[in-house]
C-alpha cells in the first residue's frame, strides 16, 4: 500500500497517480457543472430537485478529489477547480459538451435525451472505476472510492429508470433517445480512457487497465440492452479527441470562463 507520505519515494508512481486524480476530479467537476446548468429546466419540478441532488453529490466528489490533490502538494483545491486552463484539464470531452444550444441563461434548448444518456453512461463508467479503485494500492484513493461508491447506487438507479423508460417508448421518444445514444457512443470511449500513464497505473496497482474497464462497461450495458430489449448497439468511439491528453473543445473554454467568472475577480480574496 502507498500513502501520501511515501509518495515522494516513487516519482513514476506519483506522476501516474496525479494524472489519474485529475481525470477523476475534472470529470466529476465538469459533469456536475453541466448538471447544475439544468437546474430549473428539467421535465418537471420533482425531477429538478432529484437531479440537483445528483449534481451536488458529484460536485462533492470532485471537491474530495481536488482536496486529495491538494494534500499531495498540487496546490489549493479551489484554484485547481477554477484556475486551470482548458489544456491542463484531463476530463473526457463527452462530459464537457454543452447540454444543447443557447446558454443556461439565454434561450437554453437543452436536450433531455442527451442528458439522460450521457449521465447514465457516465455513471455506469464511474461505478466500474470506483469498484476497481476500491482495491487501489494508493490507500487514500481506495478509501475515497468506497465513499463515492455509496452515492452512486442512487445515481445509477435514477438514470437507469429514465434511460430504460424513454428508450422503450416508440415514436419521438425512442428516436430522440437513439439519436442521443449515437452521439454519446461517438465519444464514450474517451470516458473510459486512462491517458498516457495507463501502463504505470496498472504496474503499480493503482487501478485496472483500460481494456478491462471497457469490457466491464460493455458487458453491463449489453445485459441491460437485452433485458429491456432496447433498440441500440454498443460501439465505443473517441471521435472528438482525447481529453485525458488535454485535448478539448471550445465548449470547455466557455464553461471555464463562466464557472470562474467570480473567482477571477480576485483569486486571492476570501469568498
Amino acid at each position: 500500500m502507498m500513502t501520501i507520505e511515501e509518495l515522494h519515494t516513487n516519482p513514476a508512481y506519483q506522476d501516474a497517480l496525479v494524472d489519474l486524480l485529475y481525470q477523476l476530479a475534472d470529470d466529476d467537476f465538469i459533469v456536475a457543472y453541466r448538471g447544475s446548468e439544468w437546474l430549473g429546466l428539467a421535465p418537471h419540478i420533482e425531477e429538478d430537485v432529484a437531479f440537483s441532488s445528483i449534481s451536488q453529490d458529484t460536485m462533492g466528489h470532485a471537491t474530495m478529489l481536488y482536496e486529495l490533490l491538494e494534500s499531495i502538494g498540487e496546490g489549493d483545491a479551489n484554484a485547481l477547480a477554477h484556475a486551470r486552463k482548458a489544456d491542463e484539464r484531463k476530463n473526457a470531452i463527452l462530459l464537457e459538451m454543452v447540454n444543447g444550444s443557447g446558454t443556461y441563461l439565454q434561450e437554453p434548448k437543452y436536450d433531455w435525451a442527451f442528458a439522460v444518456v450521457r449521465h447514465y453512461c457516465y455513471t455506469l463508467a464511474k461505478t466500474i472505476k470506483m469498484k476497481s479503485l476500491q482495491q487501489s494500492s494508493f490507500e487514500p484513493l481506495a478509501q475515497l472510492a468506497v465513499k463515492i461508491n455509496m452515492e452512486l447506487h442512487y445515481h445509477l438507479l435514477h438514470w437507469k429508470t429514465w434511460f430504460t423508460q424513454l428508450m422503450k417508448i416508440p415514436g419521438e421518444s425512442q428516436e430522440r433517445m437513439v439519436a442521443a445514444w449515437d452521439r454519446v457512443m461517438k465519444d464514450m470511449k474517451g470516458v473510459l480512457a486512462l491517458g498516457s500513464y495507463e501502463e504505470d497505473l496498472v504496474k503499480y496497482n493503482v487501478m485496472t487497465n483500460e481494456t478491462q474497464l471497457m469490457h466491464s462497461w460493455m458487458q453491463e450495458m449489453q445485459s441491460l440492452i437485452s433485458n429491456y430489449h432496447l433498440p441500440i448497439e454498443v460501439r465505443l468511439k473517441m471521435n472528438s479527441g482525447n481529453g485525458r491528453l488535454g485535448e478539448h473543445s471550445k465548449d470547455l473554454e466557455d464553461a471555464l470562463n463562466t464557472l470562474s467568472s467570480v473567482y477571477r475577480i480576485d483569486p486571492t480574496a476570501a469568498w
Partner: peptide, 11 residues
Amino acid sequence: EEIAMVMAQEN
C-alpha cells in the same frame, strides 16, 4: 411508480 420512487427521497 418507478419514476415516483426515484423522486421520493430527494424531494
